[in-house]
Design a protein around this nucleic acid. Structure first.
Length: 811
RNA sequence: GCCGGAGUGGCGGAAUGGCAGACGCGGUGGUCUCAAAAACCAUUGGGGGCGACCCCGUGCGGGUUCGAAUCCCGCCUUCGGCACCA
């Protein structure tokens, strides 16, 4: 009898051996196909939680499988280490963010090692170190040089709690994505990355194998819409025009008023003297309103008449000009033609303020009585002069043509996506490498002077100003152009800049003099399989795509997409089925389970819970099933043949070998399609069935079958398999072995159960030769006593045969 | 409101047109034990029958098909995304 499976002892031992033998160190090998398997790097929050394990265990299993399939697999790890959460945590604890972060990294490294993943630790990165963030600065300068970074004054999302501005992507439902504080607006000079330049290309997602859900979210976020932009002359004001954008130019004859966003630059010029007071008040009120109030569709529409009129270029009619906060200054031209009859929002507004509603599109089935709601579907144009009787979809093109001919306006494409605001008024981030000189304005720091180090001795408590503003030695510098005194930029970069290109750095993280090593990047990139949560759909995943496209256009990389395939794992819930949180007291600490049951058991249990993309509750009892499976597996492999096992050619040999081939096939197919739960159930089934063959299998066949099983479980339970492999007498690592292959013929049983149905109800099952002919099967069915009983001497109306599966006799 | 996914035993789930409930948890009965735990064996969708067996059953209502958890139509519930973007 072999001793029992003791995870604690073997896991630690193998982790040390693997580390000292550099088992997981990888290098570029042009002779071998590469496979870049990437997990989203963890944030340095303090502890590795069960969610990390849920991401990394299946990811590592898949990567290990690929390695056994002959790929040169890169599976790196590092830390996303800058940013607000670390800064906040440090402030709360009264310690420096650098100390807090570096301590966390050390702690998390230790926890990550317990997973037993094949991370190549020689490639570890931490984004808060100058050796990393100096390249944020370098890349920023490249973008600046090429017009892809710029500084502008714009209304920005301000989080009063985090005391900084946020990118649009980081505002969810009008609230800060991090702390859920309601965001306000501030007009500030900020740095932007010109992601809008790539809006169209970012919509191209045919070549990436990503979840449809994420692609849809990105498409929605980019929000491309086709329409017409045209100019409305202001009545009695020669030369003054209001540009508007519409997707429904076919409804232009139904325009009964015009609306400008309250912050529209033309408002001052357009407002009539007697309306100034009211308009000012309304503008002030809008400015104070939070984004969340303003965006609420529940809210009643508000607005103010400017006291002036515009002229509809389609029919020369005069229509009043209003301002209202349901029109956004940041989209289109910040002004609209209002057609209440065919737009829900305009309809509501017109009703409230008693503005006329004129029908210009009639439903194909006709319409009677007064309009009670806007009709927004296509239809037939009416009250539209020469376009009357046209289908609105056709009319859309005709009116656009007409406007183009007359020089009134033309076709236009608009996007919802805005440029990426990267300035943050916080301490714990990459300093933006520019200085402001009275004479030369914005001056980029020359490359040779990088990095601009983040001073450690700054007062980093948030004040609404960037903390670096108060650091005299940092702020006061000289202009790189003229050498006269100048001031440094004191904002830092959004952390998402760090994560936009880290996958490139991993290819050779120690390269000097460049953010990444072109040869290594050429070899490894793009990432073959990216694995992480869906919460980054319109942030990190969009920014990275933008970055890579920009780098490609700068000639720095040769490809346009960073991640070929993406998989979003689900979320592990607490035992009570709700999201884990400290306040609910339902947090599962992986370390406890690793201590008591072993990392391999935790890995396997997480994979066994259910489909990887659906997550689910952690059931503390459920883990024992996986645990006892592994104990049985262990005993089966080491003691299974037993002492009195039959010699060569045991009668169980053939079934055992068939079982092996069948299992290899199953496990391979399931691991390929990320179905880790069914892969493990397949292995459980195999051990259950093999157990039944005990005592009937020769030592030779038993060994062959158990070695295959050890290889099959190696990606899932790496320490466990390694130990068994060595106990079976091998000297080299199980993880250097080839994935077992199967013989298709051996995956089929020589006999099958033929289902006999009458009227699609199962009446009997007969064991038959796998190669049974249709005629034989039909005859067998018709002669079957249970079928005979149902037939009652009549002839069947029909007999359906599904080869080697079933016969259905229809009476 | 719009778009998308999901709904299967007490629970997690399997089966993507052909035996519903693989695999596991939990339950029940048993073996072992002074006892308990562990381990092992048997059993476990519901109902009926002494029994061989029979009936019902994949959110609800219809449909297609010899045959539907699976395909189609209509609803309900739920989760996610979008939502004054003109």
């Amino acid at each position: 009898m072999a001793d029992k499976y003791n995870p604690r002892e073997i896991e630690q031992r193998w982790q040390e051996i693997w580390a000292s033998s550099d088992l997981y160190r990888v290098q570029e090998r042009p002779d071998q196909p590469k496979y870049y398997a990437l997990v989203m790097f963890p944030y340095t929050s303090g502890d590795l939680h069960i969610g990390h394990w849920y991401n990394y265990s299946p990811a590592d299993t898949h990567a290990r499988y690929k390695r056994m399939r002959g790929f040169n697999v890169l599976e790196p790890i590092g830390f996303d280490a800058f940013g607000l959460p670390a800064e906040e945590a440090a402030i709360n604890r009264g310690i420096h963010p650098h100390t807090w972060t570096m301590n966390n990294i050390q702690r998390m490294e230790g926890q990550l090692r317990t997973i037993g993943a094949m991370f190549d630790w020689s490639r570890e990165i931490a984004t808060c170190l100058p050796e990393y963030y100096q390249w944020n600065q370098w890349l920023f300068l490249k973008l600046l040089e090429n017009g892809l970074a710029y500084r502008a004054k714009a209304p920005a999302n301000w989080c009063p709690h985090c005391q900084t501005v946020l990118a649009n992507e980081q505002v969810v439902d009008g609230r800060c994505e991090r702390c859920e504080t309601v965001v306000t607006r501030r007009d500030l000079e900020q740095w932007f990355f010109r992601i809008t330049k790539y809006a169209d290309e970012l919509l191209q997602m045919d070549e990436i194998d990503w979840p449809e859900r994420v692609k849809t979210m990105q498409r929605n976020w980019i929000g491309k819409s086709y329409g017409t932009e045209f100019r409305l002359p202001v009545a009695d004001r020669e030369g003054l025009e209001i540009p508007v954008f519409t997707t429904r130019v076919d409804t232009v004859f139904g325009m009964t008023y015009v609306v400008l966003a309250p912050e529209h630059p033309l408002v001052d010029e357009l407002v009539a003297a007697e309306q100034v007071q009211e308009v000012r008040e309304y503008q002030e009120q809008t400015r104070r309103a939070s984004e969340i109030e303003r965006l609420s569709t529940e809210r009643e529409k508000t607005g103010v008449f400017l006291g002036t009129e515009a002229v509809n270029p389609a029919n020369g009619e005069r229509v009043p000009i209003w301002i209202a906060d349901y029109v956004l200054g940041s989209y289109g031209t910040g002004a609209i033609m209002a057609v209440p009859a065919h737009d829900e929002r305009d309809f509501e507004f017109a009703q409230k303020f008693g503005l006329p509603i004129r029908e210009v599109i009639r439903p194909p089935e006709g319409r009677e009585g007064p309009m009670t709601e806007a009709y927004v579907a296509p239809g037939i144009m009416v009250n539209s002069e020469q376009f009357n009787g046209r289908e609105s979809e056709v009319g859309k093109e005709l009116v656009a043509d007409w406007f183009e001919e007359r020089g009134v306006g033309g076709r236009k494409v608009n996007y919802r996506i805005r440029d990426w605001l990267i300035s943050r008024q916080r301490y714990w981030g990459t300093p933006i490498p520019v200085v402001y000189c009275d004479e030369h304005g914005i001056v980029p720091i020359p490359e040779r002077d990088l990095p601009v180090l983040l001073p450690e001795d700054a007062e980093f408590r948030p004040t609404g100003q960037s903390p670096l503003t108060y650091h005299e030695a940092f702020v006061n510098t000289t202009c790189p152009v003229c050498g006269k005194p100048a001031k440094r930029e004191t904002d830092t970069m959004d952390t998402f800049v760090d994560s936009s290109w880290y996958m490139l750095r991993y290819c050779n993280p120690h390269v000097d003099g460049a953010p990444f090593d072109p040869a290594a990047v050429e070899y490894w990139m793009p990432v073959d399989q990216y694995m992480g949560g869906v919460e980054h759909a319109v942030m990190h995943l969009l920014y990275s795509r933008f970055f890579v496209k920009a780098l490609r256009d700068l000639g720095l990389v040769q490809f346009g997409e960073p991640f070929k395939r993406l998989f979003n794992q689900g979320i592990i819930l607490g035992p009570d089925g709700s999201r884990m949180s400290k306040s609910r007291g339902n947090v599962v600490n992986p370390d406890d389970y690793v201590q008591t049951k072993g990392a391999d058991v935790v890995r396997c249990y997480l994979m066994f819970i259910g489909p990887w993309d659906s997550g689910g509750p952690w059931n503390p009892q459920g883990i024992s099933g996986v645990e006892s499976f592994m104990h049985r597996f262990w005993a089966l492999v080491l003691d299974g043949a037993g002492d009195g096992a039959p010699a060569r050619g045991g009668r169980g040999d053939e079934p055992a070998r068939r079982l092996m081939h069948k299992t290899i096939k199953n496990v391979t197919e399931r691991i390929e399609r990320f179905s880790f739960n069914t892969m493990l159930s397949g292995l459980m089934e195999a051990t259950n069935n093999l157990q039944k063959l005990r005592g009937q299998v020769s030592a030779e066949a038993w060994r062959e079958v158990s070695e295959a099983l050890v290889l099959l479980i190696a990606p899932s339970a790496p320490h466990f398999a390694e130990e068994l492999w060595h106990r079976l007498g091998h000297r080299d690592s199980v993880h250097l072995q080839h994935w077992p292959t199967y013989d298709e013929a051996m995956t089929q049983d020589p006999t099958v159960m033929l289902i006999i149905q009458v009227n699609s109800k199962v009446r009997d099952k007969v064991e038959v030769e796998a190669g049974i002919t249709e005629a034989e099967a039909r005859q067998l069915a018709l002669e079957n006593p249970k079928v005979q009983a149902q037939l009652n001497g009549n002839d069947p109306r029909q007999v359906i045969y599904v080869p080697s599966k079933l016969v259905n006799v229809v009476v």
